[in-house]
Design a binder for these strands. Structure first.
Lengths: 109, 109
DNA sequence: AGTATTCATCGTAATATTGCGATGTATAAA
DNA sequence: TTTATACATCGCAATATTACGATGAATACT
């Protein structure tokens, strides 16, 4: 089908999966890392840095924005992107909860 | 195209994206959480617990196994799945590295 | 041997993702 | 006003993902 049965899972599970999906592409990891490093976040820079066409970069940015992990503000003719710390707090919390649980598991089989 | 330009990114970026991809579906989150809770990991149980057909569950298990996050051992006629702690150590390390970097970013824009 | 159980894999259908060129929109520069 | 610059969005092609029924392979049960 290609359609996830979202309604069949808990909100928490869907939330974590959504965050993971946003991170599930090397280009989006690269974008986030660049935003972390530069902090200032001019959009055109990303197109220069990434080995992808402008349209493709724009699409990845839109996806990260949709998830809320980044936000963009208009700055004249250019677009300034940066991390949305509020959303990241939620994201990190969700991930860390899973990680903590994983750490409690004994080596088995 | 639908084909990720893997070779254009660093190995680290691809590694992190691959782990994220494995976690990018609520069913796989649910599987992992069940494996964490039960620890013992009989496969048929997952089919009972999840609102998905056996073939679909098997497919999700195969994907988690491909990434290395779980491993399965044959136990008579059934299949025993459990977390692969070694791979999880790598996964957690990769995620935590990103999280640490995110935490250093100042609120902006 | 014959049957049931457990799981993986195949094949198929529907939808999603990735990537890009082309085009549109809005601001800035001339 | 015309032109350039910076992005977003549309439309397309190729591939991937999700879901499932059907079938296959292997072990256990009678």
């Amino acid at each position: 089908m290609g359609l996830t049965k979202t309604e069949a899972f808990t909100e928490r599970q869907n939330e974590l999966a959504t965050y993971a999906k946003a991170l599930a592409h090397p280009a989006r990891i690269a974008i986030l890392e660049h935003l972390i490093q530069e902090d200032k976040c001019i959009c055109g820079d990303l197109v220069d840095v990434l080995p992808l066409a402008q349209a493709t970069v724009s699409q990845h940015l839109a996806e990260l924005k949709k998830t809320g992990l980044i936000k963009g503000t208009i700055s004249g003719t250019s677009m300034c992107y940066c991390l949305d710390k509020t959303e990241w707090t939620k994201c990190i919390s969700a991930i860390e909860t899973l990680i903590e649980k994983v750490k409690t598991v004994a080596t088995c089989c």
